[in-house]
Design a protein around this nucleic acid. Structure first.
Lengths: 328, 328
DNA sequence: TCGCAGGTGTTAACCGGTTGACAGATAAAA
DNA sequence: TTTTATCTGTCAACCGGTTAACACCTGCGA
């Protein structure tokens, strides 16, 4: 137990009124004379009174906190997404409890266990780990972004299929014959798979060979680079790459240069995400831009609806856009 | 008021014991027979009981939450820093409450007002806004990162002066005669100013002209680009730039190319920060790397000490490193 | 038989706010 | 004068846990 802070009762004593009256002044509730209001305000000032939020939360059964469960914030896409979510939630009076799982199922579980115990009013999740059974039979409002969690939970996602088509078509239009795709391991039930489906359909339709390299999100940069070296070794004929995110696209271009390929002369590259940070640091990259801001807005709207008890469990899909750089 | 959840009392009723006994089982406290323990566990399982964290927090006057007040998470440096802080805090049993101020003093104030009301056990701040009076007379443990807040609050920072020397010296060694520096507006009392001081001292010592362009952190990308165009217009003779962060360095190089300058042939550029994301997306940039992980570790350690009541209000300064790229 | 230690469990106060129910006062309407 | 509406304010229960204080029981040594 920590030291005693000034509490409502102390204010009441100094102002010469009851706790209720102070609480009413605080919350602007019921009838109050100006004289009483002034008295109470004066007492609060004198004592440097700060109402204890936790006590209020306990009574109101509401914390105005929303948990964000994502892999990490140190990433152009998730960083911008969490920043947007934070901003949207702030506008509605919510604060954000960070739950970076680092793609560690234990951590995700730990966060969930804790957050479900009345710590937050709702959850927005985008972590990868499949089959976390705690998501089932959840009593809490939950919205998922770019992840399939459970069929009761609405998903906000970009139109990944259209994105896959745009990217692949761009490479085909550029005359590429040997296009390689990178994506998550396919056992992850992620909307990302739609990009792969689009890629494979287009390649098949054009009678071209298809190769997908699976790169898990939580691999280290060194591991990813190793995979990309292998990519060039196993497929020296590659003349186009459709990467599943801009960071991987950047790594692939670095490896390509090390292997003596010039981009875009010898190799075209299209990325995915088009986050602010990538646009600033790597503006030459041609990429499929996800509408991050809109995704955040939609997710928060869906969450608010659930918190308000509205039964709108509809998923949302938002359009993507091809950004023309110089790499494809 | 929301619907009633299963509470400790319900468990007690089902198990046929008192609230206290259930609480003891929960917290492993006092003497309990195995039979009682089993009975209680069985009842908890049956009812899917989850203890309400808020109630516990109220009694214990402790939330195991730490507030992070930074400008934004959508930035290579702050993104990585917050990820590291989150990780360090997690290891010690704390969760993170995000407080992105977006460099808006009102938002920073709003966060502070709320966080100080018992919402968090401590605060780690790195937001820019000077003179937020709420930081004075704070009862809460606070640590600041790369910001001077108030003299009672310990600061964790990189050795900015050494960084400024390294960067400027590199450009001088490269033979640059007209080196321009970018930094925050100088009225911000930030350790960043040490970089400027180092730059100016070296330039003066070499009898070279010095120009610092002030770019506020919260300007839009478009505004920053406008400033950098102006930089090249006003100083066509520039042959070296020491940017105060890698993002600005990237923008400057883009503007330089638009103006027909080749990097590094016509213009050398040194950045600052050396965060993961920049290293991945812009590996060719020569930059001064801040020890982000160590800064996070140090900050969390200092905070823990304060929470534990130890009186170690000493600030910490950590070494920086020059990363050789191809831009200088 | 009594005293005492160790084990087991309960009662009730407490954390710091919020609010329904209610009492008393004053003023306006009947 | 009585009734009714409008103010002003208090009491006590409540949110859901935690724990100090205490009571009871059993077994053992004196």
């Amino acid at each position: 137990m920590k030291k005693q802070a000034v509490k409502l009762e102390d204010v009441a004593a100094v102002a010469g009124v009851s706790k209720t009256t102070v609480s009413r002044v605080l919350n602007n509730r019921g009838y109050l004379s100006q004289a009483t209001i002034d008295k109470v305000h004066k007492a609060m000032q004198e004592l440097h009174y700060r109402p204890n939020i936790i006590a209020r939360q306990l009574y109101q059964q509401r914390t105005n906190l929303v948990g964000l469960v994502f892999p990490t914030v140190d990433n152009p896409f998730f960083g911008q997404l969490e920043a947007c979510l934070d901003h949207e939630l702030y506008k509605r009076g919510y604060r954000v409890l960070m739950g970076n799982s680092q793609n560690n199922p234990d951590r995700e579980r730990a966060y969930l266990r804790q957050l479900l115990n009345g710590q937050v009013d709702g959850l927005i999740v985008g972590a990868h780990n499949e089959g976390i059974e705690q998501y089932r039979n959840i009593q809490l409002p939950v919205v998922s972004i770019e992840r399939l969690v459970s069929k009761d939970i609405p998903v906000v996602a970009a139109d990944n299929y259209a994105g896959g088509v745009l990217a692949t078509q761009q490479l085909l239009d550029d005359g590429c014959q040997h296009i390689i795709h990178t994506n998550y391991p396919h056992d992850l039930a992620s909307p990302n798979m739609e990009r792969r489906r689009a890629y494979e359909e287009l390649m098949r339709r054009h009678g071209l060979p298809m190769y997908t390299y699976e790169v898990s999100f939580d691999s280290s940069t060194a591991e990813k680079i190793k995979i990309f070296y292998r990519l060039f070794d196993e497929h020296p004929e590659v003349d186009g790459v459709f990467a599943d995110n801009d960071t991987n696209a950047s790594l692939i271009m670095q490896v390509a240069r090390k292997r003596g390929r010039r981009v875009p002369e010898d190799l075209k590259v299209v990325g995915f995400d088009g986050a602010n940070m990538t646009r600033t640091l790597l503006p030459e990259l041609t990429t499929i831009q996800q509408p991050i801001q809109q995704m955040a807005t939609a997710a928060v709207q869906l969450l608010q609806d659930q918190i308000d008890g509205k039964k709108t469990t509809n998923s949302v899909q938002l359009p993507v856009k091809l950004i023309h750089g110089t790499t494809a």
